[in-house]
Structures are given as structure tokens and as C-alpha cells.
């Protein structure tokens, strides 16, 4: 799941300054799950912005709110068409993908990001999310006991722990587990420590020339007909 964090109210207010009528648009998928932009966050932000307006004494903005199931597909955005008639900008609480999908679908309307898209991860407990995947495009989890050193080691190194690990934690953050200690323990448990002894050569960053594209459909010439 994509995890994001809502931008500060101050930053959001700064962004919307030029626009009078703002539609706050939530996303019913990842942003709902990570508590950054679901229907509740949309109304909370709506209330917070209105409070800020009433406090500032010279508020000019008016807000509306709406939440689509997913912002990252054009089809879901079609229902926006009749919501934006009198809107000057969309404040999207979708991830960076959602914001761009809106920009592509609604070429004449400014769209503003209301969240900082942070990472792909999962909930550790209620209200706490941890990164798990860096989308490197070259997965080596089979070699590392299902624990990703690229994501979870602050240096993303492949050949074992650095010397900075202490008490099983990372030198960069004492609350963060050292990925390589986790990998060692898990491989030991699985009886696969030989995988850790193996030399891993330099990573192939060529797998991610940006922007990336994945195609799961076969290329078939239209001319070939349906027979």
C-alpha cells in the first residue's frame, strides 16, 4: 500500500491562496487506509480549513468535499466532471499518482497535492506505518529471507551489515531494526545462511530508468484480426 502524510495546514493554506473555490478530493483506497486522505480526513481538513478561514477574519475561500474510490484511474475521475463546474482548483488528498491522474484527466483545472506521498509500506500498529518496499524493480527477497535490505537498511547494502549496528538497531535511527541482523536471524532460522555468505555484485540500476512502465499485455498487431 502507498503511504502518505497530510501536508501541514499552513502549507495547504499557502497553496490554495490563489484559488477561491476549492474542492477537497479524497481517495478511497490507499489514502483512506493510511489515514491521510480518506473521507474522514477530507471532512477533517475541510473543517480545519474553514476554522482557519473564520480565524483569519478575511477568508475568501469556499470549500466542497468529495471522495472517489481511487484517484489513480481515469474512470474513477469521470464522476468528478459534474462536481467541478464552479471549482477553481482541486486539492487532492490522493497520492502523487492520483494528483497526476487528475491533472491528465482535467487539463484546464489546477490540482494541488494535499499529502506528501511517502513510501510503500504497511501498518505496524494503529497509526504507525513502516516502509517495506522501494520498488527497485529487481527483487532479491528470495535471497534475503523475505526481508528487504534495499528498503530496510538505511544504506541499502547487499553484502551484510555495516559496523554501525548496535543492539540489533540501525546506526541511523536507534528505534529502527538493523535489516541485516533481521536477515541473518531469519536465514539462520531457515537454515539458509549460505545465502548470506554469497557475494552480491553491484546492483543493476538500469532496471529503473525513470519513468518506468510495466506492460502485462502482449503486443499484437491490430491487423491480425480476431480469428
Amino acid at each position: 500500500m502507498i503511504v502518505a502524510e497530510q501536508k501541514s495546514l499552513a502549507e495547504i493554506r499557502q497553496m490554495i491562496t490563489p484559488y477561491q473555490r476549492v474542492l477537497i478530493l479524497g481517495c478511497g483506497t490507499c489514502m483512506t487506509v493510511c489515514n491521510a486522505g480518506g473521507e474522514r480526513e477530507v471532512s477533517f481538513l475541510h473543517n480545519a480549513l474553514r476554522l482557519a478561514e473564520s480565524r483569519s477574519g478575511n477568508g475568501i475561500h469556499t470549500f466542497s468535499e468529495y471522495t472517489v474510490k481511487r484517484q489513480c484511474d481515469y474512470e474513477f475521475l469521470d464522476s468528478l466532471v459534474d462536481k467541478i463546474g464552479d471549482v477553481d482548483a482541486i486539492l487532492s488528498l490522493g497520492c502523487g499518482i492520483g494528483v497526476q491522474a487528475i491533472a491528465e484527466r482535467l487539463p484546464d483545472l489546477p490540482v494541488l497535492p494535499g499529502v506528501n506521498t511517502s513510501f510503500m509500506g504497511m501498518a505496524e500498529e494503529w497509526g504507525v506505518w513502516d516502509e517495506r518496499c522501494a520498488a527497485c524493480g529487481d527483487c532479491i527477497l528470495a535471497e534475503t529471507g523475505g526481508i528487504c535490505p534495499i528498503t530496510r537498511c538505511t544504506k541499502g547494502i547487499l553484502n551484510g551489515p555495516c559496523a554501525g549496528t548496535k543492539n540489533g538497531k540501525c546506526e541511523a535511527n536507534k528505534d529502527m531494526d538493523c535489516a541485516w541482523i533481521l536477515i541473518y536471524k531469519r536465514l539462520e532460522r531457515l537454515g539458509q545462511l549460505d545465502k548470506m555468505r554469497r557475494y552480491y555484485p553491484l546492483r543493476n540500476f538500469r532496471t529503473i530508468p525513470r519513468p518506468r512502465r510495466v506492460a502485462s499485455k502482449a503486443s499484437i498487431d491490430v491487423g491480425e484480426g480476431n480469428g
Binding site: 538505511t154 544504506k155 541499502g156 547494502i157 547487499l158 553484502n159 551484510g160 555495516c162 554501525g164 540501525c170 546506526e171 541511523a172 535511527n173 557475494y199 552480491y200 555484485p201 553491484l202 546492483r203 540500476f205
Partner: peptide
């Protein structure tokens, strides 16, 4: 050497490169 994490230094916002690690550097 692999090198310390940028988080312990005085340019915490820097992009950590770590294109290779110490073992790979020896190999290089």
C-alpha cells in the same frame, strides 16, 4: 569502507549514494 549513514552527520538531508558497499568496492 561502506561509510557512515548521512543521518549521523552534518548534512542529514543529503542523498546517500551507496551505489556499492565495502565488499563490492574491494571487488571494483
Amino acid at each position: 569502507l561502506t561509510g557512515d549513514s548521512v543521518d549521523v552527520g552534518d548534512h542529514k538531508e543529503a542523498k546517500p549514494v551507496f551505489d556499492s558497499d565495502s565488499v563490492q568496492l574491494l571487488k571494483i
